[in-house]
Design a protein around this nucleic acid. Sequence first.
DNA 1: ATTATATTTTAGTATTTATTAAAAAGATAA
DNA 2: TTATCTTTTTAATAAATACTAAAATATAAT
Lengths: 97, 97
Amino acid sequence: MIFSEKQIESIAEMLKSIAHPIRLKILCFLMEGEKNVGEIESEFGSTISNISQHLTVLRKANIINRRKEANFMYYTLKDENVSNLMRTIKINFCSDS
Amino acid sequence: MIFSEKQIESIAEMLKSIAHPIRLKILCFLMEGEKNVGEIESEFGSTISNISQHLTVLRKANIINRRKEANFMYYTLKDENVSNLMRTIKINFCSDS
DNA sequence: ATTATATTTTAGTATTTATTAAAAAGATAA
DNA sequence: TTATCTTTTTAATAAATACTAAAATATAAT
């Protein structure tokens, strides 16, 4: 085993945060670039409260960043590692590119 | 959005199956090649019953295959897509390669 | 100030998932 | 056929997660 117990726990935590239909859709959407909560909400149903809660989960798992501008919150994928992971998922598990 | 709802659901399901410390460790171990339940059990604690249940989760999520030989069950990663995903996780989220 | 807009937080309930222990099933060996 | 070994299944309880609706916060506009 190459990984430490701590590392395993944190990677599992991160994957768990991605492994939800709504959060996965949010992340796919964020691959396009920065979006605010309203934009995310209108892209696919659910309530804005629910979206916000899912964004919190992603943020606590270190998957996304947020930036405040006026009373809007703009979200982005955290870093290249996250982008790489999302791209790999897309390439390997989505029939159409 | 490029993905269909069904595709999203199934990818989320698959990621959820990976997103657990014990299952993640099992998958890392299987990157080395085929292993039976006893080998997996002795590699890291937990009971054999618990391991078996986690293996069932992974198998139902189409992440691993199994093969019977005498009264041993041998498990492997399902395909290249799964290997690619595991490799990406390893490269991007494990400090030491 | 008051109202409106955008987002987050809290609280409650329902659902899902994990863990443990015991029982069962299947294959081999004595 | 009885015993043994490997693995799976079942059942019960505990713990984590998800969803809804309501309340709260913060900024902007009137």
